[in-house]
Design a protein around this nucleic acid. Structure first.
Lengths: 156, 156
DNA sequence: TTGAATCTTGATAAAAAAGTCAAGATTAAT
DNA sequence: ATTAATCTTGACTTTTTTATCAAGATTCAA
């Protein structure tokens, strides 16, 4: 169970652009590349995905660059992650045999699918109200939303 | 955010073997291959991982095969998934700069890491008390553990 | 209108994951 | 002992994901 590089980099680029929303400054691919340590080509590729997903707007030309297509508190992280990396469990998978539980109980596949669905629900529950705005503040702000102690990295 | 094929197949193989635990029957690679529709070679590769992780025991020879190394209610799914596919977020990553929140707040990387950690915690919370035993029953049994309606596949 | 800076796109290359293969080692039955 | 059935291991091939490249299109300023 892993996040893809696209999810990691995509979210970082979006946060980076989001930090400049309130000063109405757009960011260029070279700028983001330097800030995030991702190659320009890769930044371009990732921003294309975010743009086509409706989260960014771009302007060409000498004074071009990328800006958010909506205020940070209107951009839902759950939607962003879906565009960047899909979902763990897609309901449509088992729609073909909804209610046919006699089949599902005999296949280990459906036991596993059920577990994936439960995990997906747990993740959705975390993300459902989370917006880009929540990721623009300090780390502490984010943790406090979920009652997680900031410095609880086990030992040390 | 995806589960790997190894996680999916590994869990299915483990559940399959677990279903025979109470009748004390071992399963062979060819049997599991047929049951789960996975090639024999791939089953062998996956079972090796589970065996080295301590969840399975194997016996060679003409009457050989695989059995659980412990009763299903003693095998924690969280441990199985860790061996099969690692974790979303590893605490050791940020241990090097615990408390240095002034750095973390300036890098988008740490905003994202914090989100990964929160999601990992949510998943752990689902898995912490889940054992293989819970996956051996019917689909309904599993859903009832988490208050999920069995037939809630949105529309249809 | 020329040039420089930018985004855009499809094709290509590199890396990682998944799956396959072949040869070997062990065991039990005959 | 011999044979047949099994697990074991490392190497190999294929597929998917990730990252790079090159050529093009757009915009602004001088």
């Amino acid at each position: 169970m892993k996040f893809s590089a696209q999810e990691e980099y995509g979210l970082r680029c979006l946060i980076r652009i989001g930090k400049y929303f309130k000063v109405e400054k757009s960011l260029t691919i070279p700028e983001i590349s330097v800030y995030e340590g991702i190659s320009q080509h890769n930044v371009g590729k990732i921003l294309r995905i975010l743009r086509m997903g409706g989260f960014l707007e771009s302007e060409r030309g000498q004074s071009g660059g990328y800006t958010l297509s909506a205020p940070p508190d209107k951009i839902k992280i759950i939607d962003v992650l879906f565009v960047l990396g899909g979902r763990l469990y897609d309901d449509s998978f088992c729609q073909s045999h909804t209610g046919m539980n006699d089949i599902c109980t005999n296949t280990t596949e459906c036991s596993v699918r059920s577990l994936w669905k439960i995990i997906q629900d747990a993740v959705d529950n975390v993300l459902v109200n989370l917006t880009l705005q929540d990721l623009l503040g300090t780390e502490d702000n984010l943790f406090s939303l979920f009652d997680v102690a900031p410095g609880n990295n086990s030992s040390n």
